[in-house]
Design a protein around this nucleic acid. Structure first.
Lengths: 351, 351
DNA sequence: TTGAAAGCGCTACCAA
DNA sequence: TTGGTAGCGCTTTCAA
C-alpha cells in the first residue's frame, strides 16, 4: 500500500495538518520540523500529496480542458489547429496550468460523458459554435469557457470568444480573385453537409452549410461574387470529406475534365487549397487557387491566402479563460486578418 | 452554490447511494426511479457527479500524462513531436482516456511539482531518458510510464519503452553519404551542450553530448566516418541552439565561407537539415545534406533522411501504458527505420 | 430494489 | 508553531 499523508504524520508523531503544511505552507512550521517531516516522508516512500485529493479539497483542478470538434487525433494533422494549440500551451505554461485534451467518442451519450467527466477548471472549445451540446454541458457544470467563434445566437449573454470576422476575411480573398477578372469560380469546403460525398454539391445557399465557420467563409466568397453579378446558383460548390490535403484533391478531381471549367478555386482552408493544387498538377499554372489561414506550407507553395493569427488565437483564448477580463466586452474579440497575395493567383484568361 | 449529489437525494427523498447508482449503475434500480432522479437532477441543475470526487473515490483519474523534455509550446512546433502526439491521441481516443499535457516550468523544484501534481494514471515521457528526475518522481508516485528511448542504465528493470536504434539508424544515412565519397563532413545537432553557442563546437566525442538521442545519432554518424578513416577530431560539429529551422540555419551560417568547407552536412533532425538548406541557398546544389525523421516537409524539399514511424511510436507508447503486455520483454520495443534517399545528396565533388 | 455506514486523501479553519 | 475538527463529493460494500 502506498503511504498517505496520515502515515507520515504517524511516523513523525505530528498531526496531518502539520504534514500538510510542510508541503504547501512551509512558513507555517519550523524549518527543523519541516525537514524532519520531509525526510521521513522520503524514507517511507511517500510521494507527496495525492493530486486528486488535493483538487477535491481545494476545489479546483489546475488544468483546463481543450475540446476539438473533430476527432482529437485529426486535430494534430491540421496545421492550424496545432498552432492554435501551441498558443494555448504557451499561456498555460506561463500560468502553471496543465492542458487536458479530451477526445470525444462518437456516440452522443459518450461524448457528453467525456465532457462531464473532465476534471478541469474551464474549457477552450476550438471551432465549435456548432457543438451546442458541449457548451450546454460545460455551462451546466458551471465552468467558464472560451470559444473560437461568436455564439450562433446572440442571446447567449456573457460569453467569451476569440475569433475573426470569417465572412469579411473570406470576402477579401474573393474580392482579390474577382478583381483579377475571375467569374467562373469553384468554392471548396469540407464537410459542407454531414454525409456529403466528395465533389460537386448542390446547396440552397451558404447558410445551408453545416459548420458555422464554413457558412461564414462561403458567405464571404458569395458576397464578392454577388457584387459582380455572379449569383449562388451559378457558383460551383465542391465538398471535401475532411479538412485534409487528400480530401481537397479528391474533391477537385475531375472538375477540369468537363468543358467550361472554372478559372479559379476558392478554398475554405489552406490544406484544402494545397490538395487542390496537388490535383491540378500542371493545370495549376493556369487555374488560380486561394486558401485560408496561411499555414506554413502555404508560403512554400506560393499560395494566395488570408492570414489569421493562429498562435495568438490560442494564447488569447487561454488567457481569457485563465484570467478573465473584468470588462465583459473585453472577452469578445475578433482578431485582424490579412490578405496575403502570392503566386497561385493570376488574371483570369480572356475567354 | 452548485447542487451536489446529496441535494438531489434529498429532493427526491432517496439516499445518496441510489442517486449514485442512477448515474453509474442503471441496472441497480428501477427504471422509474432512475428517471425520477435524473429529472429532478436536471431541474435542480445538478451537472452529474463531480469528476474529481469520483476519481478520488474510484482511485483513478481517467487520464494519462504526456511529458515533453522541451517546453510544451515548443513541442507543437516540432513536426515529429506533433505526429507522435497524434499517435498517442489515437490510442487514448480508442480507450476513452484523456491526455494531460503537463508543461514543465523552468525551476527544478517547480518542474518536479508539476509532475507530482498531475492527476493521471500514468505517463508517456517523450524523448527523455535523460530527465531522470521526472522518471524518479513518476516511479515514486507508483505510476506506470513509457518512454521513447531505452533507459540509460540497464539496471532499471521492468521499464517499458518504444524507441528506435538511434545509432544504427544514424549510421545508415552516414554510410550512404560515405558511399557517395564524402569525407569532409559537418555534423549538425541541437543543444549539444546546455549553453553552447550556435556554430562550430569542440567536443571530446559523441558521448559528451548532453541529450541521449543526440549521443546516439552522433555516434552513428561517427561510426560510418570512422569506418573510412575519418576520426572524431577531424569532424566538424555544429551546434544549433534549438531544434528549429532557424536554429539550423544559424548553426550552419558562415561555415562555407572558409576554405576547404565540408562537402556534406549530416543533421540530427529534418528540421535542422531544412534550416541548413535554407542557409546554404544556392550552394545547396553542391553540398549534400541529410536529415533524420522524415517529416512531411522533408519530402517536398527532396531531403535524404531516415524515416522512423512517428504516429506509430505514439500509438504504441500509449497502448503500452493503457494495456500493458503481460510479457515483460514485450514492453521493450525498437521500431524499424528506413533510409530514404532523395535529391539532397549526391556524389562528393572530386577534389 | 434501496439505504446506512465508511471512507478515498487531503486542506483550512480555528483554538491552543 | 502545532493539532483537532470538519468536511470536499462521491462510491461501494453490505445489510435490510
Amino acid at each position: 500500500m502506498r503511504p498517505t499523508l496520515q502515515d507520515v504524520a504517524t511516523a513523525v508523531g505530528v498531526s496531518r495538518s502539520t504534514v500538510s503544511n510542510a508541503y504547501c505552507r512551509p512558513d507555517q512550521l519550523s524549518a527543523a520540523l519541516r525537514t524532519r517531516i520531509l525526510d521521513t516522508a522520503r524514507q517511507l516512500g511517500y510521494p507527496g500529496p495525492n493530486p486528486t485529493a488535493r483538487s477535491l479539497r481545494r476545489g479546483f483542478a489546475g488544468a483546463i480542458g481543450v475540446l476539438f470538434t473533430s476527432q482529437l487525433s485529426y486535430a494534430f494533422t491540421d496545421p492550424f489547429a496545432v498552432r492554435f494549440l501551441a498558443g494555448v500551451a504557451e499561456a498555460a505554461e506561463r500560468h502553471g496550468t496543465s492542458l487536458l485534451l479530451v477526445p470525444l467518442p462518437t456516440g452522443a451519450t459518450q461524448a457528453r460523458a467525456a465532457v462531464e467527466n473532465a476534471a478541469v477548471d474551464g474549457f477552450c472549445v476550438y471551432c465549435a459554435a456548432d457543438e451546442d451540446w458541449a457548451l450546454d454541458v460545460i455551462r451546466g457544470r458551471g465552468l467558464p469557457f472560451v470559444t473560437t467563434a461568436p455564439p450562433a445566437d446572440d442571446d447567449a449573454g456573457a460569453e467569451r470568444y476569440v475569433g475573426i470576422d470569417e465572412r469579411a476575411a473570406a470576402r477579401s480573398v474573393a474580392d482579390h480573385l474577382v478583381g483579377l477578372g475571375h467569374r467562373r469560380v469553384a468554392l471548396l469546403a469540407d464537410t459542407v453537409l454531414p454525409e456529403a460525398p466528395p465533389g460537386p454539391l448542390r446547396l440552397a445557399g451558404a447558410d445551408a452549410a453545416r459548420h458555422p465557420t464554413t457558412r461564414g467563409r462561403l458567405a464571404g466568397f458569395a458576397d464578392a461574387l454577388g457584387a459582380v453579378g455572379v449569383d449562388w446558383p451559378d457558383i460551383t460548390l465542391l465538398n471535401a470529406t475532411g479538412n485534409s490535403r487528400a480530401a481537397g484533391a479528391e474533391a477537385v478531381a475531375g472538375l477540369f475534365a468537363g468543358d467550361d471549367p472554372p478559372t479559379a478555386v476558392l478554398a475554405a482552408s489552406d490544406v484544402l487549397a494545397l490538395g487542390a493544387l496537388d490535383a491540378l498538377g500542371e493545370r495549376a499554372a493556369t487555374v488560380s487557387v486561394t486558401g485560408f489561414d496561411d499555414v506554413a506550407e502555404a508560403a512554400a507553395a506560393g499560395l494566395t491566402t488570408v492570414r489569421q493569427p493562429a498562435e495568438e488565437k490560442g494564447r488569447i483564448a487561454a488567457e481569457l479563460l485563465l484570467d478573465p477580463p473584468a470588462d465583459d466586452a473585453a472577452g469578445k474579440l475578433l482578431l485582424p486578418t490579412e490578405l496575403v497575395v502570392r503566386t497561385s493567383t493570376r488574371p483570369a484568361p480572356r475567354s
